[in-house]
Amino acid sequence: MSAFDDRERAFETKFARDQEVQFRITARRNRLLGEWAAERMGLTPEETDAYAKAVVQADFEEAGDEDVIRKLAGDLTAASVEISDAEIRAALNDKAVEARRQFIDSQN
């Protein structure tokens, strides 16, 4: 039974680690996405930093990416930036790849 318990603990540890890694990558992706949107809106460096943090916070509103996409679409439209949901989703995918790459690089 001890071997089974050890194996179960190992799976639980791996699951917890995988969830933490995914959380960090998603938070990094959202920060990069916020910086991308801030650049399109012409924000100052201080405003960019605050906005990127706000985008990270927006992801806690509901599960999935729709809350972040809604925030970006609303803010970009309010700033008179012409952009489609497809462009935002493409940027989200690009920033996800970049965030994963940055995370992997930081582990080496």
Rank of each mutant, 00 (worst) to 15 (best):
V56M: 04
G64Q: 01
A91D: 05
N108F: 14
A54M: 08
F23D: 09
A90G: 06
L92R: 09
K71V: 12
S106I: 05
E66G: 00
T48N: 07
W36N: 07
R29M: 12
M1V: 15
K14F: 15
V81W: 10
D94Q: 08
R24M: 10
L76M: 12
E87T: 14
T44P: 00
A10N: 09
A90F: 13
A16Y: 07
E87H: 08
E87Y: 05
L92K: 11
E8A: 12
A10Q: 08
S80D: 15
V55W: 08
G42S: 03
R70K: 10
R7L: 15
E62I: 06
L72K: 11
A38V: 03
N30K: 01
A27P: 00
D18F: 09
L33W: 04
I88Q: 10
D65E: 13
D18R: 14
L92S: 08
A73C: 00
S80Y: 14
G34C: 00
L72N: 11
R24Q: 12
E35V: 00
D18C: 02
E46P: 04
A50M: 02
A58I: 06
I83E: 01
E8G: 02
A37T: 01
P45A: 05
Q19W: 04
R100G: 07
I104E: 15
L32Y: 04
R17A: 14
R9T: 10
E20A: 12
S84E: 07
A91F: 11
S84H: 01
E20R: 12
R28N: 07
D85Q: 10
R29Y: 06
R89F: 13
A27V: 02
E47Y: 03
D6H: 06
V55S: 03
A79F: 13
R40K: 14
K14S: 09
Q107V: 05
P45K: 01
R7A: 15
T48M: 03
M1L: 05
Q102W: 04
E98H: 03
F23R: 15
A99T: 13
I83F: 09
K14M: 15
T48K: 08
A27L: 03
A54E: 09
A10T: 11
G34W: 07
T77I: 09
F23I: 13
D105S: 04
N108T: 14
A90T: 14
A50K: 11
Q22G: 10
E12W: 11
S2R: 08
